[in-house]
Design a protein around this nucleic acid. Structure first.
Lengths: 246, 246
DNA sequence: TCATTTTTTGACGATTCGTCACTTTTTGAC
DNA sequence: GTCAAAAAGTGACGAATCGTCAAAAAATGA
């Protein structure tokens, strides 16, 4: 690796510290409860020093977003490594997305906020670029899976491009997460397990586009079980245990 | 109607004025550019007077949200009055939703923000209740259409409840709008007309659940054309003209 | 050891929030 | 028309937070 001076290492270590502390504060107090003064106090450096690392409060929060999006990207990466049909990998992506939005609910919400026109004004172009890049990488994983499916003829799209198919799946996954995290009373509406409902919808959609193997030809229950145990057992346990003492 | 005193009428008129002005300022400067002082200056009343109407800045913005959501609710209402099959009415709902999110992009974004945990903390329970109620009414319109379809046996749901079906459609509509308004470069991705893509996905989904008439049995192009000309001709022209000088 | 460079600090001006003591206007009894 | 009580309106104020910058402290190395 590149050899860094002690100073540079110290600088990076402090940056990590700032982010760790900020993440905790953000988790605890939310967007408006997080102030630069509070961060400075918590890391025991002065405000000026914080501003050597981040130009503004928004940049700190962007860095937090980038962090959690990198986690998502890694989960997607793991999903693509699932051993099985491309369609099974796509299922793994969906599971990854759902797990991610539950494990990083606050950050997911904050990413949504950042995409808002009002807040975007406050964020330097460069930070936005960085986030867009990570999101792009996530999307690229999905594109690759679809490409793989088309290549091995599991999927033959007729009046639709791969991008358009992905846009649909992405919309439903994204939309359902937004709805679930906005404390809409889904249980009251009679929806006990929204994640499973969304899975069902996605499966139907993939069926209708003829992505092999179709759901009546293949035991996807088994697939989902394998995804959960082989890929995301740790994340899953964190999610369910997080549920309990919440 | 109830007879109001001159004072009460004046009071209401001023409240409208405040909201009108705030809407303009919000449109122009966004969430953070909108301040109570600026509102006060613009309406030519003092800040204290504004605070007689709204307890906080967030309440002003909630009122703006409520306003735009009522517009959506009315558009949904219009959609339910479309003369045709229940499924055609459902198409009209989708068109209404898409038109709404484009015509009230800022407000739609802001509603998203308000649903965020961070911001919800700043909003009194009562205001949130009011918004939830309007959203509920919107959802109720959709529930009614599905109920109608089931009643006349256009739709026979087997392993899915009406609420679950709606949740899926709602997710895809909501998710796609969020993605579109977050300046994701969809065109670069090769998606020229995202709204039409989403319509296609929804149609496929309704087909796969067997909602009659299926899309190969009925000319839905014609239906969409009727929806646009019979119901939303005015909104549509505002949308396209708004596009031009933007 | 000490002058120079680098790093850190926190006081500061600016902005915005929501409040409240004071001023102005309105009301209605005489 | 007058005047005192009630209602409505005002904007200066304290508090919180932002981002800056001159001065202090620490590190460097001749």
């Amino acid at each position: 690796m590149t050899q860094l001076t002690r100073k540079q290492r110290d600088f990076q270590a402090r940056e990590s510290l700032i982010l760790d502390v900020s993440a905790e504060l953000f988790e605890q107090f939310g967007y408006f409860g997080l102030s630069m003064d509070r961060i400075a106090q918590a890391v025991e450096y002065s405000k000026g020093t914080i501003y050597q690392h981040f130009q503004s409060k928004e940049e700190v929060l962007c860095a937090l977003c980038a962090r959690s999006m990198r986690v998502q990207q890694q989960m997607f990466q793991k999903a693509t490594q699932f051993v099985g049909h491309p369609r099974e990998k796509m299922c793994a992506i969906l599971v990854a997305h759902q797990l991610y939005t539950h494990l990083y609910a606050r950050e997911f919400n904050h990413v949504q906020m950042i995409k808002t026109a009002s807040i975007r004004q406050k964020i330097p172009e460069s930070s936005q670029q960085a986030l867009a890049e990570i999101e792009d990488q996530c999307l690229q994983r999905i594109v690759n899976i679809v490409a793989e499916a088309i290549e091995c003829q599991d999927l033959v799209l007729e009046d639709m491009t791969p991008q358009e198919l992905i846009f649909g799946l992405w919309s439903i996954a994204q939309g359902s997460s937004v709805i679930m995290l906005s404390d809409t009373p889904l249980e009251e509406m009679g929806i006990e397990q929204p994640d499973l409902v969304i899975r069902a919808h996605c499966m139907r959609l993939l069926d209708v586009y003829g992505w092999q193997p179709l759901s009546h030809q293949w035991d996807y229950e088994q697939t989902y079980h394998r995804i959960e145990t082989e890929l995301f057992i740790e994340e899953l346990s964190r999610f369910t245990s997080g549920d309990q003492h919440d």
